[in-house]
Amino acid sequence: MTRLGELLFAPGFFQSAEVTRALLLGSMVAAISGLMGVFVVIRGQAFIAHALADFGGAGAAVAFLVRINPVWGFLTFGVLAATGVEFLGKRAGERDLSTGIVLSVALGVESLFLYLDTHYTGHAGAPMLILFGSIFLVAPFTVPIIMALTVTTGVTLDLIYRPLLLSSIDPELARIRGVPVQAMSLIFVILLSLVVEEGSLMMGALLSISLLIGPAAAATHLTHRMGWAMLWSALLGITAMWMGIVLAYDSFYWPPAGRGWPVSFFICVLVLLFYLLARLSSQRSQVKVRVARKCDA
């Protein structure tokens, strides 16, 4: 039994403060991303989420240059971009274009500041850190910030759950029922930016949405109920996060030995795996539904 334990968890896994912190932060980020993700999937806003992450990345690059904690760069730029996307593209048709414009500006600014970062701070690893993240290197004082963000986002999502769902299903119907649809949309995209920037701190700007979209998309194949989908999505995200952290820790001894593989890589692959399995299982159950219908007629 201990042999198996040693095989799964490389020595020092449970003693390392970095690992404990990564597990704690990772669980929070995966959980809140999973909850939000279901709404992102039903609102079709995956593209916006990606743009927000990249804009946050540009902010982090700026923060890196002026030597403040990247978390502030991620957050301010993320929220600004969220507001910008919302006001640039009020109509659904325009939104795709305005998101595309915001995204390209984000990447452009990001490329400039990442260049300046490596030039002026002497940190050759800055681009890698901002774009692909490093969950083991998150500064201890970031923990309360992440906690506060997670709780705030969770509580707000809980509060606006029903009007948000109604306006995601049919905005006009929601408006007639007295739901402030535009405010819902703005609040949601700001929450989205907060969650995405949290993810960016762990997974990097480029990969932060993998915890947002994949688990939620998988969950919609596993259940037909909103609440269960959100629960599944959070659970799948947390599982991918924990397995990713274990694998990344173990990979310290994999070639080229002496440096672990990026956690983000493992998480993305695991999320993809979960998604494919979920699709497979739902395809089988859908065939059953179809057959049952035919006999009914």
Partner: peptide, 21 residues
């Protein structure tokens, strides 16, 4: 594949505009 059953949609008619879950 929206995770919403027929009765969930209908229930929104009752309290879809209210705050909370």
């Amino acid at each position: 594949d929206i995770p919403l059953r027929g009765r969930d949609l209908v229930a929104l008619g009752l309290d879809g505009h209210r705050w909370g879950i």
